[in-house]
């Protein structure tokens, strides 16, 4: 299983094994990663699973679609490397991915 690192708002790093075929949000929720709220459950309707992706990984993830982009504009403190974790599908290629959880969600 791809290994993915979540860095909490306070800087604490946690690594999890994420099964292929689910989303990054679901993997975070299964592992009880603090700060990933995901109120809508992955429908791209709430912007509460926002993460900052380590810049080196942005290109590998590909661009966010329009709906996600529109959500991110009003997420809490969006940055150029902001993504909604419910829109990122776990695949083998994401082994080693590193994301930071914002201090708050929208």
């Amino acid at each position: 299983m791809p290994r993915i690192a979540f860095i909490g708002a306070a800087g604490v790093r946690r690594e999890i094994d994420a099964p292929v075929g689910i989303t990054l949000m679901e993997a975070a929720r299964q592992h009880g990663i603090d700060g990933i709220v995901a109120r809508c459950g992955g429908a791209c309707a709430c912007a509460t699973c926002h993460v900052y992706v380590a810049p080196a990984w942005m290109a590998k993830l590909g661009p966010a679609e329009d709906m996600e982009q529109g959500m991110l504009e009003s997420a809490w403190e969006p940055r150029p490397n902001s993504r909604l974790s419910c829109q990122i599908q776990i695949s083998k290629a994401l082994d080693g991915l590193e994301v930071t959880v914002p201090e708050r969600q929208a």
Binding site: C44, D66, E68, G70, S74
Partner: peptide, 12 residues
Amino acid sequence: VNHSKDYMAARK
């Protein structure tokens, strides 16, 4: 309808 930007802005 297919407009998340308006929706998010409206929430606020």
